[in-house]
Simulated scan of single mutants.
Amino acid sequence: MITLPPSRQRLITGFALAGILLVAVLLGGWFLHVLVLGAVLLGLWEFYCLFWPGNSQLVQKCLGFILAGGFVLSTSLTPEWPILFVSLALCASALMFLARFGSHHPETRITDYTVLPFGLLYIALPLSLALHMHPAEQIFVVLVSTATDCGGYYAGMLFGRHKMWPSVSPKKTWQGAAGGMVASIAVCLVAGHLASRNASLGLPVMSFWLWLTMGILLNAAAQLGDFFESALKRSLNVKDSGTILPGHGGVLDRIDSLLFLLPLYFVFRALYTAVALLSAPLPTPGA
């Protein structure tokens, strides 16, 4: 049996995932919904298993799966449907806490029952934002996330000397973070150049400085998402969220940066659109 080095495994897995994503984005519709749903359910399973290993809390896991599936599949409907599934998750957790506390278990704490709804808010909600984006934007945010990850990984491996936040992520260095930042900015500047040459591409047409700012902010969000998941795993004494992706660990290890990057991109795009509309000249009366 041939064993590939971790860096080679990482590259092969990354290209395979990129190919699957590209096909789903090009096909769109339910193909993309199925891809997002698969990522949500796999990530959610790993997240729940961090807190509830094996078959423990199987009822809560299954309930979380059902609600997360309903959340993702209902995003193409009216906005009330996704909100309904989050509300149901919160109510279910509250009722389970109430039942346990009321059964003569005064040591029960509400924090023991927040894992179920937090999984939906942490994983299902941000990934579902991708379903409301133009295909070019979907590819763009994944490229920024991948560039941050690969740039940080290889820059840290080649030049890493000074630890960045060892209490959270012992292997991450300032040199690696700088490599991820440069890669993220490069992707954003290339995207900005393409958008300026083709306004119908689906990406916002912004100035060089705004694309540069976006590259810095999205990189910061991606790295914070990675740090959060690292802190989560270290608090539970777990090395990886799973083993399904060779060279990457689990699905949650691969998408952790996207979970922070996607909401920030939405905020940045919404603010830019709002400012552009407000600064647009008013139509001349009678024109």
Rank of each mutant, 00 (worst) to 15 (best):
F65M: 13
L63W: 05
H33G: 09
G54P: 11
E46N: 05
L63I: 11
L35A: 07
G43M: 10
Y48V: 09
Y48D: 06
P53E: 14
Q57D: 13
V36Y: 01
C62F: 12
G54V: 13
V59G: 13
A68K: 01
L41T: 04
F47Q: 01
W45K: 08
A39L: 15
I66V: 15
V34N: 00
V36H: 01
L63T: 09
V40I: 03
C62K: 10
W45N: 10
L41E: 10
F47W: 14
Y48M: 10
N55H: 12
I66Q: 03
F65Q: 12
L67A: 03
Y48A: 07
W45S: 06
L67V: 02
L42K: 00
W45Q: 13
V34H: 00
V34D: 00
K61W: 10
E46C: 06
E46G: 09
Q60Y: 07
H33Q: 12
W52Q: 11
A39I: 05
L42S: 07
F51A: 14
I66G: 09
G64C: 05
V59M: 12
F51T: 08
A68V: 05
Q60N: 14
V34Q: 00
W45A: 08
G64V: 03
F65L: 09
G38Y: 00
A39R: 00
V36R: 02
G38V: 06
L42G: 02
G64H: 02
L58C: 05
L42T: 09
C49N: 13
Q60G: 10
L50T: 00
G64M: 04
N55V: 07
L41C: 09
H33I: 07
G38L: 05
G54C: 10
F47N: 01
L44Y: 12
G64Q: 03
F65K: 06
Q57P: 05
F51E: 04
V40K: 02
L50Y: 00
G38H: 01
G54M: 13
E46M: 07
F47K: 00
S56E: 15
V36Q: 01
L42V: 10
Y48K: 11
L58G: 08
L67S: 00
F51R: 09
V36A: 07
L67I: 03
C62P: 02
K61F: 15
L67Q: 01
G43C: 10
V59L: 15
L42R: 01
L35P: 04
Y48R: 08
H33P: 01
L42H: 02
L35S: 06
I66R: 03
A39T: 03
W45L: 07
G64R: 02
E46H: 09
P53L: 14
I66D: 01
L50C: 13
L41S: 04
L41M: 14
W52V: 07
L37E: 04
S56H: 12
L42E: 00
L41G: 05
H33W: 12
L63S: 05
G43N: 10
L44W: 11
F51N: 04
L58Y: 11
L41N: 06
F47R: 01
Y48P: 07
L41W: 05
P53D: 11
